[in-house]
Amino acid sequence: MPVSADEFREWLEGGSLSASPTALSALTGINRGTLNNQIRRGNVAESTVISVARATGMNVIDALSSFSPYQVIKSRPIEPSRAEILSQVHHADLMAELQFRTSKKHYPRELRKGIALIDFPHEGSVRAWIDAIDPGDIRHQMSQETGMALTYIATQLTENKLNPPLALAASRAGGGSFATGMVVTELISPAEGGWQVRSREDELLEVSDDVLVDTISARIHLLQRRVKQRREAHEYARKMTELLG
């Protein structure tokens, strides 16, 4: 759901910025031809708006919410929910926490001292976010709202990505923060999306045992699928290289 070029021009004028592709290219570093194409076709990518906002020191949430598809962003809290934060913690970090809670003697927390959590997005992190906010039929609701096929959504999730309209639709269906969808899909940075610097570390320390175990259990299920897919890919590749190599 890129924003319209007319709205984009108005927005630039409102900020006393030139709408010329050359000036915008110099400002943002985006290729002039790319900008020219976007403006000429009437569809400006969300990432372009965000680049302009960043280059001019504007708040990216304020910038995005100036455009009709994204005016809803500020209608809900910007900050992520606890479940959303936990969804962006890697399963290895979840399991490390499980070990720390299991035995201070065998797994002292100091072992982890000075080692940061695994960055997100990581493999499966977008799917984990969807699962964390899913009221039961989130994929159907996303498909209905955007008109995109369920198979396309599944493919996007397999590739660990969601385009902005799908991220927006997922947030709407899940009832969570609209900004978090954009953070999880890397459209905006965690800081821009209202995430505290150590929000994941704090959540990991505070999460209850049952939620921690349930989350690990769900992630193990996803991991089983991934390991199975890798095994099948391995067998297929080996077969082909043996037969043709």
Partner: peptide
Amino acid sequence: GLALFAYARRSRKTETELGSALSI
């Protein structure tokens, strides 16, 4: 094309490229 498959087999590309699914 067939020579590339032979290269993939000789250089054990299956093992080197498709390592553990757990590793990041």
